[in-house]
Structures are given as C-alpha cells and as structure tokens.
Nucleic acid binder design. Structure first.
Length: 712
DNA sequence: ACGTCGCATGGGG
DNA sequence: ACCCCATGCGACG
C-alpha cells in the first residue's frame, strides 16, 4: 500500500485521535487502527512504518521480526502490545512487555482490540478472530477455533455489559466482545494480561490451551467471549508476568529440533528452595496449572509425561492439595528430572508444548550465579536446549548452552578472546562458590526483593576484561593477537570504535534487557537485548518502543536499572531535577560511567550497594573525572600499574607515546645540564619548565636511568 | 529415625 | 480483605 501517514500526533503528524465510545465510522463499521501508535482513525490510515498489509500482520512493529511462532500471541501480538500483551516470543525477545503499565493507562485499549478484531474479521470474512491470509500459514488452525464439544473444564459463560468491566480488566481469560463497548472511554485500571501466557491453539482438534476450556468461545463471527476463571485474584497481573515464558523464536526453533513441530511456550517458573529440594514437589502456579495442564477433579490428580529438551520423557504426578477453598497444584516426583538438568533454587524451568501433538516439554534456564560458578563473570542466564551455539560449547546438563563469553552480546562486539585456563575475572572459584551459597540461601527466603537485589548485585561484576566487550574494533581493522599474562588480546593500530554504551540487566524471572541513555534528553530507554546503537543515540532512534521514541516521553521506572547501575544519591537527585544532564559532569552515559568506574577497578564489591560505600568507591578512583571510559588519552590507555606491563620493545601506541615523551624529557634534561655547565647557575626544576611531565608519570622515573627499562 | 504425604500456616502481593 | 504459594509440620508407614 502506498504512503499513508498516521494522523496520531505521537505517531506521525498532528492529530491526536481520542478514543470515543463505540467509535463508529461515518461510513459504517469500525475504524481502522494504527497499530503503531494504537490509535483509531476514522479512515484507513496506516502507519507506513510497519503496516505491511492489512491482512498480513506478520511483522511486529517493534522488533520488525516476522512472527511465525504460531501462537495466538504471535499473530495478535501487534494488537496485543497495546492491549498489554506479552506473549509473543519474538516480542519478549524485544522486551516489548516493557511498558505494560503505561499501556494499561491508555484508554480504550480493550475497545480498540475488540474493534480491531471485529473489523478484521469482517474484512476477512472469517469466523476466526484474525483473518489468516493464504500464505505459508494458511494451514494453521484458526486462531480461535471453535471449542470442542464437552470441554473439560468449566461451563461456557458469557459476560456482557460494563458492569463486569472491572472484573474483566483485572482477570485473565476475560471477555472481549464487540457488544461490550458501552464505556470504553473509561480508563482501564489494569490491562488484562490473559494473553501474557502463550495462547496458541494446539491444533484443530484441541482447544487452545491458553484459553482454558470454557473460558473462551466464539459466539459468532464478531464476538469473542473468554470467561474469567472463578478463583483468580487481583494479583493476577503480576502473577502472569512472572510466569510469562520468555523465549525467543530462535530458541524455540532449537528446542523443536528443527522439526516441523512448533514449540509453544506456556509458562515458566523460578524454582524455589522447596521446588528444587529433595521433597520432589514442584509447586505449580495455580493459573498456569489450570490453564495448561489437564483438568483434575481429584486431589490425587493424574499421571503426566513431560519430556525434557534432550527428549527424555519424565513421568510426574500432577495433583493438587485443597487449600483454603482453593487448590495448590504440584508436580510430584520431579527430583530425578531436576537432578538430571542440574537445576537448583533460582534456576528457571520452562514448560512448552510441542505442536502438533500437544506434548509437553520442559526446558531450563540457569541462573547467572550458577554459571558464574563455572567460571564466568558475565551476568546472563543461559537457556538449556534453546540457544543456537556451537556444539563444542555444550555442557552436559545444558547441551545447547550459550557460550559464556558471548551470550547476550552481539558477535561483532567481541574483542577480548576467551580467557585461557587461569585467566579469570574477579569471580574466582572460591568467591563464586560463596556467592552461589549466598544466592541459594537467599532463594530459600521468602524475600524476593532481597533475591532480586542479590541478583542485580551479582550482575555488576564486570571486569576490565569484560568491558572489552563494549569496544568495537575499527571496521577495517586487522588485529594482531598478543598474549599478556595469559590473556589474549587483539591489538589494533587504530583506536577502538565506541558504539553507544548500554547496560544489560536481567529480569528476575529470566530474560535480558538492554538500556541506553538518550544523548539528547538523557533518559534511559529499554531496548531489545540485541540492539546495536550508534555512538550517538537519541530517543528518536528508539524504534522498539514507539511510545518512547520522543524525548518528551516519560522515562520508564528505573528501579531495576538503578539497582544495576547503583546510581549514587547524587545522580538520582540530578535526575529528579530538570535535566539529569544539567550541571553535571555526566555528559555521556552517566550511569554507564559509574559502571565503567567499577570496571576500571575490577570492582568486585557490588554486593553492598549502600550510599556511603558507593561514594567511597567513587572517590577511590584516582583518575580525574575527565578521563572517561572511551577516553584515549595516554592516562586512560596506560596499563594498570603493577600488572599488565608491556614487554620491552613493545611498539604499541601506548609504549610508542611513552617512549617518545621519555626521549623528549631526556633531551631537555641533557640540554639543561649543558646550559648549566655553560655557566648560568639555575636551579630550576625541570618540571617547572613546561609542565611536560605532568600527567605522564606512567610508573616511570625519567631521572632514573632505569626509568625506561622499568616502564617498558 | 527417617522419608513421605497431606494439610496448615502465614508472608506478601 | 483476599488469595497465592513457599514452606512448616504433624501423621503415618
């Protein structure tokens, strides 16, 4: 379709289109929607940026990935994003669930979704919710297939009218009905996150698992009704996001073994101490158990077979305990499986379904601490069986585990080569073991906040080695491999290229996020983990979150980022002022600089992030603040004293510069001596001459004959 | 004494 | 106030 400009102000031009009740088109029917900005229009104006075809809806407007995972979310994702959805595997990869709170504030989202659905059904003349065009996915089951007769659980129940709105809004499996547009203009207190979990129909013969049997029905070609589960409470939103599977398309492809089957991520859970303990009982989130596992009427439950990513099939007892008029679902007999996968408290188990067939498969994701114990200081978690990596890097328990050094970092950014056997960062075996114990103990507590902080603190353990990963070699560079104290370096004649510095964080339930600071407004923006940014980056480049592609857009809640950056009180004060940047010395990536400060020091004291200690740490930096990360002055590029000295005869840039300056000094010294010998008695200190030596100490004593030898 | 089972309790969202 | 769920704990074999 041709160039059509969205009329929404935040999207393209001038007109802010507010949601209006019912939003009927003058010409009849419903408005088309701009899915980029989520607004409705009277006419069929589409954002050229991502609206490929009206019937297509294949490309996520944030990540621009084609959504082919097959789940409802993958097809509805574009719609659901503005509805507060999470589920698409591509989108979770892009952190598209980042602004749920913001989205939830958006008025009329539900109505938009509803109308959009209806509109498209009408347009496509299909009984399914979304028109499925006739391309490669034409053989897929309808997104909302008619439920089989005699669904296992619950009775179909429709909810109509605005009186149920609150209930609907706060509960999953809610009703979406185009008949229910009575008060769409009311702000939604919370979005329904019912689609946060995978919601893919498992096949023509089965009911879509995401929508629990009896919860969702198609009344006619334009009405969807999803019945709220009777016992689901208000904490559901959080619950759902906690258990939302965060798995990428690529990972799914791996787990499916490149067969024709599709992997539908269902949910995941971070193992508690008791889950991973010897009791052998894995407590299942109630909503997930009821949504994705077979219906059980008796506490004894039923026998379930779940295979792991290696194809081994495990048998568990899926049952429940009556508990306060509710149920507590558990998988019993999981100990052998846990041991097989070497899972511990804090690790994450994922449950997915293989389609066709509906077979359940368990995956796992290790905690950062678990991986640290294996010698990595990096913070990322690893997927078992779901990440594409060289097989040589596999470990026994996680056959497809990501290589520690490269996970989460774009390939071309890797400069530092893998350390040799004894080369390690600050996280040596012993400290890692202690940290691991600490981690496990914390997992054992109920204090998730502590747990989270602990994880974040651990994520701070960057070393100067790992900081190398932030450097890009010059595009045409041809490196020379140099080994210094068992570390292999690639040396380049040209200085490194600095891309935009970003910060990686991990969500407590797994998955990674990347943050970057706008060079214009200094606000932090959440980015896909694999995003690569130019050295100068502003909000306008934030194609992944169109709600924050302008500097005027509010900053996200930075709690997790703050924890990660350990921003000092001062920084926070500055940020609450008119401009974070104003009047500070943090022109470029203030937070990152603080991290980098730790990097320079090989900071290993990240566990205690209280204020005074922080300030002390900052004060302990001996370099002048103007020597910022990325600075290529001779002070910044010199090797740390006491270690990492260059070999005699080294011809690297640093050494050449130092030698040159040293020669200059010696020449001047000699010249002065000659002058003195010439008669004029002067007692000038050579340093008073021109201050040349200031700033080039570099561990040397130019007046000592051994200076050069010592230095070089 | 030890392990398992089933339920109860209570912190926390 | 409600309810999920981590885990405590008694009963039982």
């Amino acid at each position: 379709m041709g160039q059509k400009i969205c009329m929404n102000a935040s999207c393209a031009t001038t007109t802010t289109v507010e949601w209006k009740k019912g939003w009927p088109l003058r010409t009849g029917g419903f408005a088309d929607l701009c899915f980029r900005c989520g607004s409705a229009y009277e006419s069929s104006l589409f954002c050229d940026t991502f609206h490929k075809e009206q019937s297509g809806w294949r490309e996520c407007y944030m990540c621009h990935k084609l959504l082919h995972c097959g789940c409802i979310a993958s097809k509805l994702m574009v719609d659901l994003l503005d509805f507060g959805g999470i589920g698409c595997t591509s989108c979770t990869n892009c952190c598209h669930n980042s602004s749920l709170t913001e989205r939830s504030k958006n008025q009329g989202l539900l109505g938009r979704l509803t109308m959009m659905v209806a509109d498209r059904q009408t347009l496509n003349g299909e009984s399914g919710v979304l028109g499925n065009d006739n391309d490669s996915e034409a053989n897929e089951p309808s997104l909302f297939p008619q439920p089989q007769s005699g669904t296992q659980r619950g009775d179909p129940q429709m909810i109509h009218g605005g009186d149920k709105r609150d209930e609907f809004m706060t509960q999953p499996g809610s009703t979406v009905s185009v008949m229910d547009t009575g008060d769409m203009q009311e702000p939604l207190s919370q979005p329904s996150l019912s689609m946060s979990l995978a919601v893919t129909p498992s096949g023509p013969s089965s009911f879509p698992s995401g929508f629990v049997e009896g919860k969702m029905h198609i009344l006619n070609h334009s009405t969807i009704v999803m019945k709220p589960s009777p016992a689901e409470g208000r904490g559901r939103n959080l619950l759902l996001s906690r258990y939302c599977p965060r798995i990428t398309d690529q990972e799914l492809q791996q787990i499916s073994g490149n067969l024709n089957s599709k992997i539908v991520p269902l949910f995941e859970k971070i193992l508690s101490a008791s889950d991973a303990g010897r009791i052998g009982r894995l407590v299942l989130p109630k909503a997930c158990a009821e949504a994705y596992f077979p219906s059980i009427d008796q506490p004894e439950g039923t026998c379930m077979k779940i295979q792991d990513v290696k194809g081994k099939e495990w048998t568990f007892q899926f049952r429940f305990w009556p508990n306060n008029n509710s149920r507590m679902y558990v998988l019993e007999g999981v100990t052998p499986c846990m041991q097989s996968m070497k899972l511990k408290a804090g690790d994450t188990v994922t449950f997915s379904r293989i389609d066709p067939g509906g077979k359940l498969v368990m995956g796992c994701r290790k905690t950062a601490s678990g991986r640290e114990q294996q010698g990595s200081g990096l913070k990322h978690t690893s997927w078992s069986g779901v990440t594409e990596i060289p097989s040589s890097m596999n470990c026994s328990s996680c056959p497809l585990q990501m290589p520690e050094e490269v996970e989460g970092l774009p390939e071309h950014m890797i400069i530092l080569q893998k350390r040799e056997s004894n080369g390690r960062g600050i996280a040596d075996d012993e400290s890692s073991r202690i940290k691991e114990e600490k981690w496990t103990r914390n997992i054992g507590t109920k204090n998730k906040r502590l747990l989270l902080l602990n994880e974040e603190a651990m994520e701070l353990r960057l070393t100067w080695e790992e900081a190398q990963d932030l450097l890009c070699p010059p595009p045409t560079a041809n490196p020379t491999i140099v080994t210094v104290e068992e570390h292999r370096f690639e040396e380049y004649d040209e200085p490194p290229v600095f891309g935009k510095k970003t910060v990686f964080t991990s969500r407590p339930s797994g998955g990674h996020e990347q943050w970057a600071q706008c060079d214009n407004c200094s606000k932090w923006r959440r980015l896909p983990v694999d995003a690569l940014l130019p050295s100068r980056w502003t909000c306008s480049y934030n194609v992944w979150d169109v709600g924050r592609c302008l500097c005027s857009a509010a900053e996200e809640n930075l709690n997790e980022l703050d924890s990660f950056l350990r921003l000092g009180t001062e920084s926070k004060k500055q940020r609450t002022g008119e401009s974070w940047k104003e009047g500070t010395e943090q022109e470029e990536g203030s937070g990152m600089d603080e991290v980098a400060g730790g990097v320079v020091k090989g900071d290993s004291s990240g566990e205690n992030g209280d204020g005074p200690e922080e300030e002390e740490e900052v004060a302990a930096t001996t370099r002048h603040p103007r020597h910022r990360p990325g600075c290529s002055c001779i002070v910044c590029i010199q090797p740390p004293s006491g270690r990492g000295r260059h070999e005699p005869g080294c011809s690297c840039n640093v050494c050449v510069a130092v030698k040159r300056r040293f020669r200059t000094l010696m020449l001047r010294k000699r010249k002065k001596q000659l002058e003195r010998e010439g008669g004029a008695e002067e007692n000038h200190d050579i340093n008073d001459n021109n201050g040349e030596t200031v700033g080039i100490d570099l561990n040397s004593d130019p007046y000592n004959n051994r200076g050069e030898e010592m230095l070089l």
